[in-house]
Design a protein around this nucleic acid. Structure first.
Lengths: 191, 191
DNA sequence: CCCTAAAGCAACGATACGTTGCGTTTAGTA
DNA sequence: TACTAAACGCAACGTATCGTTGCTTTAGGG
């Protein structure tokens, strides 16, 4: 092999096992209770492997965030802006309800302030997500479903932000009905 | 003394020194990097005192949250809904920019999932804050500045949520200009 | 089938954890 | 002012996890 890297086979199995073990451990004891040795044990992997491949806990979390962020989510295109936005927001509801999605956001919120690489990974993640949502809005703008002088990025933020606030800050439930209420209240006057 | 408690004098000094040391340590190394011994050292207090008074790291953070949450913030009443809301949102901007405010929210986001007492403290905190903001909106509603069928609580959430999203999730800057944009976009069509 | 990247294993010192026993300071009371 | 007990300081303890190292074993890819 040219560069000597060996990505397939055992390596990828180890990687998958470790990342899933991290998620499981986050669920069990929270981010503050993460232990490298426990992660290794749950993943059926030696502690040494973690340090050799990731170097530190921060890099491991950073990799997890990048991994979860890399999962492509489809951008809806039904021809109706409201239907597209509804689908997008319901996707956020599902993501926030899932363990992986919650771990992703929580990891960023917790670590990003003191880990530059994680902050970059997070920035890439959010810019991609918001770009997809913004594209949806711009399609609707071309169809005349929203006025041309609308601040698209701000609109996207206003749509999704309340769900994050409830999920992580005020600890209130987030479901599709709530998403619909936010959507109606935000888009209602614009139409 | 009857119950044997002794709240004044040295006890309160120690408490103040410790809580301020926690905030300083959060700034230095983040929540994940909190060490009881380092906190004790910075506060000029023995490690034993921390464990005897608070029992655990989680309870210490919980107490800090309760302490910060107990600080009364004035609810503006200028006679104009938009001015009141602007003042409220600028207050949030200031709080998020301050170390204490960021530590408060971050502590809740980090620990609340696995600490029931902290979750209760956080719930009290947010319900008080949102009640104040909702009162402002209802005053405006009585003056006819907002329609009577408006969902007040949802409106408050929609106003403040984008600032929290930027500060903690997408890691983007939050200033008064942004708060004004959110306010204008959210209230513009209602008026 | 070989070569070697990658994982396993075992042990290390260092650090922080949480706890205990005992002596000292200090606040509140009589 | 003197007394009492709550609160803190101090020192030491065993434990757990950290992060690292040297060496051996496994298994993927040419």
């Amino acid at each position: 092999m040219a560069d000597g890297s060996r990505p397939g086979g055992r390596s990828s199995r180890v990687r998958a096992a470790v990342l899933s073990a991290v998620v499981a451990e986050v669920q069990r004891a929270g981010f503050a209770g993460l232990s490298m040795e426990r992660i290794a044990g749950r993943a059926g992997v030696n502690k040494t492997t973690l340090y050799r491949r990731w170097g530190s806990r921060a890099e491991l979390i950073s990799d997890l965030v990048a991994e979860l962020a890399a999962r492509e989510i489809p951008v809806p295109d039904t021809g109706s802006l409201m239907e597209d936005l509804r689908a997008l927001m319901h996707g956020v509801v599902t993501a926030l309800a899932s363990l992986e999605g919650a771990a992703l956001v929580r990891g960023v919120v917790l670590e990003a302030e003191h880990a530059d690489d994680l902050r970059e990974a997070a920035a890439r993640f959010w810019s991609e997500r918001f770009a997809g949502a913004a594209a949806v809005v711009r399609r609707g703008m071309r169809r005349g479903e929203v006025s041309a002088d609308c601040d698209v990025d701000l609109l996207v933020e206003r749509l999704v932000a309340p769900m994050y606030l409830r999920r992580f800050v005020t600890q209130q439930p987030v479901d599709r009905a709530y998403a619909d209420r936010v959507l109606a209240a935000t888009m209602g006057p614009i139409t």
